[in-house]
Amino acid sequence: DVAEQLTPVLLDGPREESLQLVSELKDSSCSCAVDVSTVWWEAAGCRELRVVTASESTVSLWEPLAPDSWGKVYTWHLREIPVIQIIPLPDTCNLVCVALGELEIGEIRLLLYSSETDSFKHSLVKTGNIKAVVGLEDQRLVSSSRTMQEQQVEMVLFSETGGSKDRQTLMPPEETVTAFAEVEGMREALVGTTAGNSVVVWNLKTGQLLRKMHVGYSYPASICHRAYSDSGLLFVVLSHPLAKESESCGSPVFRVVAFNPRTGRSTGVMFSCLPPGHAGRQYLEGDVWDTTGAAVLTSGAVAVWDLLRGRCMAVLCPDPAGHWALARWATGGAGLLAGRRDGTVRLYRY
């Protein structure tokens, strides 16, 4: 029965095991898991992928012990302000970045191991009313924060020891930035989505705001997850937590949209909708890696889509032990991490 429940089901086709359970870890000291992620970690000349789990007051680092088991290496205790999320830093080694706050992010901290003092420590990167944050390649982090009067958008460059080497201010749009995504293959280009439902483009080297392009009124509160430039067009993967259900396309969870940055015109390339039986507004949170998207639905299931084909490829049904609450792609597409609030994390190969 347990094996049966672990087998993902392809809802609009034959039963297909496109998600294979690789391993599971359980943080028994965790009262309520808030996030899970992966990080590259180098120790004694060996670089390996480790799992990071977060509860409101702790962040734990897990190393692979055997093909199917994990052991806790270290736990950072952050008791003053609750941990809200782990901020993945692509291609960065031995650094974990976390956002802390109450309802909104109040500070960003780096968690690291110092070989100089042979100890784990953490350092403050930024404080403020932070609305959106993203980790970029080459140890960079961009965040937007608001005061009563204005919005600040800033990029911080980290040193390997966790200090901030350099800061660059980016020109803020008039509307509040809700999410960022780096433009893959273009080191100096960054996109963001705004509360006014536009996609904006920056030049990270100069800080210039290059373009603001409207997404459309049918898709309010769009969130950008991934962007890449091809053949003179900017392709942006958006998720739509508040999009309305329509007869023609159901409930779009993810959408790939092609923008012409020269003219600001756009066209939808592909929709990825809620699988049959999950109609209505049931999307809680999602994550995108390459051309695959994953989202937790309010039913407690995790759904996985091929975003370029617009097809739901697999559904992880809720376990008898509890609903899924977290879905994250491991760094480099090493698999899908599905987490429950009780601290259970399962790694699936996709």
Binding site: M186, E188, A189, V201, N203, T206, Q208, L209, L210, R211, S229, S231, G232, L233, L234, A258, F259, N260, P261, R262, T263, R265, S266, T267
Partner: peptide
């Protein structure tokens, strides 16, 4: 450059917009 429903497309859009945008 080429013409499409999305208007005139340029492969060098990033460099061109950076040259045109206010510093």
């Amino acid at each position: 450059c080429s013409e499409s429903d999305l208007g005139l497309i340029s492969l060098n859009w990033f460099e061109e917009l950076s040259a045109e945008a206010p510093p």
